[in-house]
Design a protein around this nucleic acid. Structure first.
Length: 852
RNA sequence: GCGGGCGUGGUGGAACUGGUAGACGCGCUGGACUCAAAAUCCAGUACCGCAAGGUGUGUCGGUUCGAUUCCGACCGCCCGCACCA
């Protein structure tokens, strides 16, 4: 029999699946639904190994669920707006080549290329639902949602301090600033005051937090990250009276320490600070100093506390004669709480550092139960204890003291218990041309006026000139100028576009019916959503997943859906890594140029040794990428898919290796040999008679494998399913002489189970086994319970916890019989050497432990 | 600094709620087939030991008849947040 021809098989079955639309397009709504979705890709031009891993996993689930009788939706689209397209257009302009190219053409060309690459993987995707977020047919509906949100005050415009990325020349959301740098450009973010559009995500702070508990099929890690990001803390907000006769609001989570206060501190960005700075040059210098440290040098100057005494004092709320100095301190953030605090150095590390430096008193007010070594002059104490030096609080524990202070201040009307969140509203304006235009118009007379719904979409012009500084949309000759929908007078459009995370915040709902004349088809959304299994990278744990959760709630509130959570189950897969290679000058070298001889790495065809570095996520900058298409060409799509599922648990990183891919390719051939060289098989559908001996063993191996693989796939344990399939292949090899019916059963089972993972090989094998209908139309095999059980069970016999012998019994043998068999075992007897057991523990079907 | 996770053979990793540690793959060793090689097939492969036996899941301790699994301390690695009052 000929070798398995992967290329021919792939061509044949990919065409056949698409021709049989019933396979890819869900139709039968009488079956239970299952919506399988992988995070859609940015159309960069070609797929990478990370895509291969992500989409292979999704495909396995989709095919598995379909075989199990679910009505499966498994769509694909394109997260198509974004900066790379603009950069490509700009490069083309500056180099003078292809001056006709624009982001739209660049993007759609990339989509076409990547679509054919994904199809080469044999993914069972319903391509009839495909769309790109840059299609006006998509972003028109997004603009509609924006207007609806605006109507319901879930969108608002505000002047605010914003994060300005000086390289990408745009603003960024808080979530997109990482270590003070832009998430994309890596440039140190600057602060600017600009009037921008915000999504009121903080309206749902509490809901987004509480609902995390219900997301039981999400990784604990992601839930925790979101929880920390939302950052709920309970505390007290109250006012100090200042010596200039104004009031100052502060927020604290430790009102119990109020009698240990030794200063009040303002953020350098606090309005009062700014007010005072008008007549205080030194303060102005100090603020400038703080801003410098606060942004660019944030990491270097970590611990240094800086303060400035304003000369004002604040009266202690429970003792007007007690005056606290009012300082400006660099460690107080305007963005959290009220931007002002009181400092209690004895019980807070930062306050302690600050008090040390500026020689402020450190007064202990919380005493630990064990006072040994307790000295707040040496270090702050943040643990539990009883209050002291605190007048009416003395003797109370921390929680009781918090309640008492809060109650007294609330009664006087100067304080209020509040819940504070770290989460800020989502700044969604971007000064970019290749994005969804914000459907708003600025009129000198009427102010900000929404575009009328009938005028949607606000369409991006095709003739953008990228040879300008700043936003090309702003510089466009006609886009900007329009008339006011309200008064009809001349007006200008908002030339900002929406953050591309908006595009990906509701695409999963659009897939339910991508041709709907409204943003979503309510009936289709109610049927398909939530997504039953969502799969993507951990890097989206906060940004994308939090925004999508917000959008789902906002769409609910504006009447578009009836659901709160978009993704019932989430799986975050690991990355694909590869060794890195560096030449003598530290230059990165591609794997293709490397040759390995006797454990060392050399430049191919030379004697030049190169340094082998750690395995890292495949990236262009380290040049350690492997192009999936080249590997598919060599090993076939199935072998590459198999590799992505083997060995490493799916949530962990996997190391790409050519040897591993080769091993997978060998297994493809092995399955093919088992199937194509099988002789003496009865016709498909032949009933199996009573099996005994080797045939029974094969049948048991088959049904145990079915049970195990089914369970593993249901729990996304692809690596374990793979191991079970190897074991079954070994059993089939070992049983080459047994009864044909049992072998047919085993071969059909292994082919069906390989189906979701290596679909082309499976179809070809299925056909070779004599079937005339496609494997994808065949139900998942069912394990026969009687055959998954064994008629004997081997128990270990321990003496004092050490394994000394083995006994073989019928399953379900009673405690007495098990005990007797254990004591009768020759090995055990020898070890016991006549001694009388003190105690015998019998765990039926598992183990016996004899204690002497 | 705070929060979370992970440490198992030469290697990737198995081991369900505490119950025979190392499934399965890679690699390696030996054999068969071959003029030879590749491919394939068969056998072996935690460590020490000829063997009987002993030792083993980062380290130390605890709970238990029994611990990779539970608890405590420490060491190492990874991830997230970071002056959050």
């Amino acid at each position: 029999m000929a070798r398995y021809n992967a290329k021919e098989s792939e061509r044949k079955w990919q065409a056949a699946w698409i021709a049989a639309q019933s396979f890819l397009t869900p139709t039968d709504s009488a079956k239970p639904k299952c919506y399988v979705l992988e995070m859609f890709p940015y159309p960069s031009g070609r797929i990478h190994m990370g895509h291969v891993r992500n989409y292979t996993m999704g495909d396995v689930i989709a095919r598995f669920k379909r075989a199990q009788g679910f009505n499966v939706l498994h769509p694909m689209g394109w997260d198509a707006f974004g900066l790379p397209a603009e950069n490509a257009a700009r490069d083309n302009v500056s180099s003078g080549k292809n001056s006709g190219i624009n982001p739209r053409e660049w993007t759609y060309a990339n989509i076409a290329a990547m679509r054919s690459e994904l199809q080469a993987l044999g993914l069972a995707i319903d391509w009839t639902r495909e769309f790109a977020t840059c299609d006006p047919e998509y972003y028109k509906h997004q603009q509609r949602l924006f207007l609806d949100f605006y109507k319901d005050e879930l969108v608002y415009r505000s002047e605010a301090d914003v994060n300005w990325d000086p390289v990408d020349l745009t603003v960024l959301a808080n979530e997109q600033v990482i270590d003070g740098k832009g998430w994309r450009s890596g440039a140190a973010v600057e602060r600017r005051k600009l009037s921008q559009w915000f999504f009121r995500i903080t309206k749902y702070s509490d809901e987004l937090l509480r609902a995390l508990d219900g997301l039981e099929k999400w990784p604990e890690k992601v839930r925790l990250m979101q929880k920390n990001w939302i950052g709920r803390s309970e505390g007290l907000r109250f006012a100090f009276e200042l010596s200039n006769l104004t009031k100052l609001d502060v927020f604290t989570t430790r009102p119990d320490t109020l009698f240990g206060a030794s200063f009040v501190a303002l953020s350098p960005d606090h309005p009062l600070t700014e007010e005072l700075a008008k007549s205080d040059e030194k303060l102005r210098d100090f603020i400038a100093e703080c801003r410098k440290v606060g942004t660019a040098e944030a990491e270097i100057e970590t611990a240094e506390k800086l303060g400035y005494d304003t000369g004002l004092t604040a009266a202690h709320p429970f003792d007007p004669a007690w005056k606290l100095p009012v300082m400006v301190a660099n460690f107080v953030l305007m963005g959290y709480g009220t931007g002002a605090i009181f400092g209690c150095p004895a019980h807070d590390q930062r306050d302690w550092d600050f008090a040390r430096k500026y020689r402020l008193p450190i007064l202990p007010v919380v005493m630990p139960a064990d006072a040994e070594g307790f000295d707040v002059q040496q270090a702050p104490y943040v643990g539990p204890g009883k209050l002291a030096n605190s007048r009416f609080l003395d003797g109370l524990d921390v929680e009781a003291a918090k309640a008492e202070i809060a109650a007294r201040l609330e009664a006087r009307g100067v304080g209020k218990r509040t819940v504070n969140y770290r989460l800020r509203d989502w700044l969604a304006s971007r000064q970019r041309a290749w994005g969804c235009p914000i459907p708003m118009i600025h009129c000198a007379k009427c102010g900000v006026v929404p575009v009328k719904q009938v005028d949607l979409p606000v369409r991006l012009p095709d003739d953008l000139n990228f040879n300008v500084r700043g936003n090309p949309l702003d510089a466009h000759p006609t886009f900007k100028h329009t008339t006011c929908p309200s008064c009809g007078g001349p007006a200008t459009r908002d030339t900002d576009t929406l953050d591309t995370f908006v595009d990906s915040s509701w695409y999963f709902a659009r897939f339910a019916d991508p041709t709907a004349s409204e943003p979503v088809n309510r009936e289709a959304v109610n049927y398909w959503l939530p997504v039953d299994q969502y799969i993507g990278g951990i890097e989206h744990a906060i940004l994308h997943l939090l925004y999508a959760r917000f959008f789902t709630r906002a769409m609910h509130e504006t009447g578009w859906t009836t659901l709160d959570e978009p993704f019932a189950a989430l799986f975050t897969q690991g990355m694909v890594c590869h060794e890195t290679y560096q030449g003598a000058s530290g230059n990165w070298i591609e794997p293709a140029e490397i040759e390995k001889r006797d454990g060392k790495a050399y430049l191919r065809g030379t004697g030049t040794e190169v340094t082998v570095g750690h395995s890292e996520k495949m990236s262009k900058s380290k040049k350690n990428t492997i192009a999936p298409m080249g590997m598919i060409d060599v090993f076939g799509a199935d072998a590459i898919r198999w590799f992505m599922l083997s060995d490493s648990p799916p949530e962990r990183d996997v190391d790409w290796s050519e040897a591993g891919a080769e091993g997978c390719w060998k297994f493809v051939q092995r399955i093919w040999r088992l199937v194509s060289e099988a002789e003496g098989l009865p016709a498909p559908g032949t009933k199996i008679g009573e099996a005994t001996g080797a045939a029974l063993e094969l049948r048991q191996a088959t049904h145990r494998a079915i049970a195990a693989v089914t369970d593993d796939l249901a729990h996304l344990r692809f690596n374990r399913a793979v191991a079970q399939i190897y074991a079954l292949a070994n059993a089939i090899t070992a049983a080459s002489g047994v009864d044909g019916a049992a072998r047919r059963e085993a071969l059909e089972a292994i082919v069906l189970m390989v189906g979701p993972m290596m679909p082309h090989l499976a179809e070809t094998s299925w056909e070779a086994l004599g079937h005339t209908t496609m494997l994808v139309d065949t139900p998942w095999p069912a394990a026969i319970a009687a055959l998954t059980k064994s008629d004997t069970v081997t128990l270990a016999v321990q003496v004092n916890g050490k394994r000394r012998g083995e006994i073989v019994l019928a399953p379900g043998a009673g405690e007495a019989a098990t005990r007797a068999a254990a004591l009768a075992d020759e090995d055990v007897k020898r070890v016991l050497d006549g001694k009388t057991p003190k105690k015998i523990i019998v765990v039926p079907n598992r183990i016996v432990n004899i204690v002497v």
